[in-house]
Amino acid sequence: MSALPFSELAARIRARFPAVAERMSENRQPWLLVPAADLLAVCQLCRDDPELDFASLCDLTGWDLLRYPAQPPSDAIVVAYYLHSLRHRHHLTLKALAPRACCTLPSVSAIWPAAIAFEREVYDLLGVQFSGHPRLTRILLPEDWEGHPLRKDYAYPAAYHGVPHARAGQWFEDGPARAPAGAAPPAGGAA
């Protein structure tokens, strides 16, 4: 019944999974980088270990690293798992990387059913495939939508069912600082 600090949480997990790495974001928020191969086992441990007892997955989301000024640059999609223990009242952030070339991660929906909806959303908006998900279909956008809009290289579609978009084919962000490296905005085409 006691909250563990991040270092101890990390130590407990790394004792079993040495491939898990401790990381810190630029503004000193600690998190664990979990390799995709270990993800399911680590999540299972997090939920079932009585000292960790992360019964709730408070959030599962992701973002695209394509334009993030990280060192080294990456084109992967981060998927972040925010765990919380209601009994011990401690938190943990896990992250897994899904590179664009093979954008697949194992689904944790068997461990936390809350992930069913969250993973569908990440799939819909960021295009990460979750293997083992019971029904991985688009959740917010229509089934026949093209592209995954929260990716940083998404351009406005030209039209949807005959209704043209006001900004068809434009990039989302303007300005030279944010223009994608080596790519010109597509001429009226979908992403």
Partner: peptide
């Protein structure tokens, strides 16, 4: 006209009078 979403959103129709 799509209101506050007309400029940036990818999924909002710019005015119901299209339909």
């Amino acid at each position: 006209s799509g209101g506050p979403f007309s400029k940036w959103s990818y999924s909002v129709l710019n005015g119901v009078d299209k339909y």
